[in-house]
């Protein structure tokens, strides 16, 4: 395994940044998130970042095209995309899995989302193993190995004083070869992961939920929800979006931005018909999407056990608790 002292990491990132756009977990204005590497950036490697990496591929707001309308003519102009390859360092296993989920949505079933594909194709992913689960983590319950990031180009390991690197894909090997002089080659034991505080039993759940659409448990589960959408905002797999436009005089930009099934406007139709009129219907949709509909469509759960919603929900609507209630119902 290639190893390097943690203290040398900024130097390594510096080196990579000469060739690639490098994104790293960092603390910015009190929030940890992925950010472009620069000197003196405060890295956030102790625990997983608050904001998941989804916005790297699927920005919170994204321009789709520009237009100019004047009298009876219309000009449409596409948005130029960044050409540079990007190396994303420090993606935890839960978030690696979330990228797999997003790939299913944006790249499969006959249509390819051009904006997502473009950023995804340009990305080289360096997964980072976890040593100590956070209080809110339950990735192992969702079938995820916290020390092996699915789909990684390079797997990095937290070895205490040092970091270990293993090139997995050709692209990953190539990145490592560019900085090979900085590594030592040694056998290193990967530290075992600590105990998990939270667990969730999802065995057979998608199947069980097929008959639970009309179950009274949804009244109970949804009662305290505020429909605030925080869960979706911090969720690494929630991917719904709205399409809108911004107009100034004759110039306009078509944009898309994150949206969420917790809000009324999401499904209300012209004329007022609302298929999901209340919070029960919306909460039910969110959990059924994660635990039944997505598995039906893409053969995987839409929850990675990252625990962000558990931490951020203002009323402690804890998904592990919801899963427990659904299993017991």
């Amino acid at each position: 395994m290639k190893t390097i002292l943690k203290a040398k990491l900024p130097e390594l990132l510096e080196q990579l940044a000469k060739e690639y756009k490098v994104l790293v977990p960092a603390k910015l204005e009190g929030v940890s998130r992925f950010a472009a590497y620069r000197e003196n950036l405060e890295l956030a490697l102790e625990e997983n970042v608050t904001m998941p990496p989804k916005d790297i591929f699927f920005p919170q707001t994204e321009e789709m095209y520009k237009f100019k309308s004047k009298d009876q003519s219309l000009e449409i102009e596409e948005i130029p995309q960044d050409e540079k390859l990007q190396v994303i360092f420090g993606v935890r296993s839960c978030d690696m899995k979330s990228i797999d989920c997003l790939d299913q949505v944006f790249l499969t079933k006959g249509f390819v989302d051009p904006f997502y594909q473009d950023k995804r194709d340009k990305s080289i992913l360096i997964a980072l193993s976890c040593v100590k689960p956070m209080e809110s983590c339950f990735c192992t319950s969702m079938g995820i190995d916290p020390q092996k990031g699915q789909g990684a180009d390079i797997q990095a390991y937290d070895l205490g004083e040092k970091l270990g690197f293993e090139g997995i894909t050709e692209r990953g090997q190539e990145v490592l070869s560019k900085v090979s002089g900085m590594f030592a080659e040694e056998d290193a034991a990967i530290p075992s992961i600590g105990e998990f505080n939270l667990t969730a039993d999802v065995e057979g759940l998608p199947e069980k939920l097929k008959d639970m659409f009309d179950h009274p448990i949804w009244d109970d589960i949804s009662r305290k929800c505020l429909n605030c959408s925080t869960c979706a905002y911090v969720c690494p797999t929630c991917h719904c979006f709205d399409i809108a436009s911004e107009v100034r005089g004759e110039d306009g930009t078509k944009i898309r931005c994150w949206d969420c099934c917790m809000v009324d406007e999401y499904t209300v139709m012209a004329g007022g018909h609302q298929p999901r009129p209340g919070k029960k219907e919306r909460v039910r949709n969110r959990f059924l999407h994660k635990l039944r509909y997505f598995p039906e469509r893409y053969n995987m759960l839409l929850c990675t056990g990252c625990g962000r919603c558990v931490v951020k929900c203002p009323v402690n609507l804890d998904i592990t608790n919801v899963i427990k209630k659904l299993q017991e119902a």
């Binding site: 944006f106 249509f111 989302d113 719904c240 399409i243 898309r256 499904t267 469509r297």
Partner: peptide, 14 residues
Amino acid sequence: KCGIGMCGRCNIGS
């Protein structure tokens, strides 16, 4: 919105 099965809102079940 999207019309291609990505933006999410028109789901009925899966």
